[in-house]
């Protein structure tokens, strides 16, 4: 009963109040923080690792790390920023980072257009119905494409385009410059777009 009352009181507390409580040894406050953020951490880990077992491991490792380092969190950055940082460190430790910067630099060139070697017309993609995602083969295609994307680029793409964080926050989380985050994001988007392009239906467009 006592724990239930404590849990409902914690419900109404801000992250800062819960953090303060957890630092002072209040286990219920820490449990409330876990409850509040476990879904965010798990989903983000899953989107980056693309694997449920790895996402679970990252979730466990992240909160154990948070617990161990509670006293070092000074509250200057947002709690979510700190959590993302810990998840990323856990994910990166598991992934062998491939040096694919050379490949990604090729995405600084436009695929077609006036300054390109190719003058081919870029076809317009057809509207993509939501039920396309229920198609198993298409789902596998999305999966395959994002797994080919080097993990450092995948993280920026997930943070910005899936989680909806700003590029500035993504840069802070990763400890890179805003320009570097923008460049990774641009290359990641271009890479994924090119991977999907051969499979997208194109619209027949009237000649302009």
């Amino acid at each position: 009963m006592h724990l239930i009352v404590k849990a409902s009181k914690n419900n109404a507390k801000t992250d800062d109040q819960l953090l303060r409580g957890a630092k002072e040894g209040d286990r219920a406050a820490f449990s409330e923080l876990v409850k509040r953020y476990e879904d965010m951490v798990y989903k983000f880990s899953f989107k980056v690792c693309r694997n449920k077992d790895e996402a679970e491991e990252a979730l466990q490792d992240t909160f154990v790390n948070v617990y161990k380092n509670l006293s070092s969190f000074d509250g200057r950055s947002k709690l979510s920023t700190w959590l993302y940082r810990i998840v990323i460190n856990n994910c990166l430790m598991k992934k062998r980072r491939r040096k694919l910067d050379d490949l990604m630099e090729s995405y600084d060139e436009p695929p077609a257009g006036e300054n390109s070697k190719h003058n081919a017309r870029i076809p317009r993609w057809d509207e993509t119905p939501a039920d396309l995602l229920l198609n198993k083969e298409f789902h596998e295609l999305l999966e395959e494409a994002i797994l080919k994307l080097p993990v450092d680029y995948r993280i920026v793409f997930v943070l910005r385009d899936i989680e909806g964080r700003s590029t500035e926050e993504a840069a802070k989380i990763l400890g890179i410059s805003h320009e570097a985050a923008k460049s990774r994001l641009r290359r990641a988007r271009a890479f994924l777009r090119d991977q999907l392009a051969p499979y997208m239906n194109v619209q027949e467009e009237a000649v302009e």
Binding site: Y42, K43, F46, K47, K52, A55, T128, A130, L132, L133, H139, L142, I146, F157, D161, I162, L192, L196
Partner: peptide, 8 residues
């Protein structure tokens, strides 16, 4: 497309 992908 990636945003619409369900996450567990």
């Amino acid at each position: 497309l990636y945003r619409m992908e369900p996450a567990p």
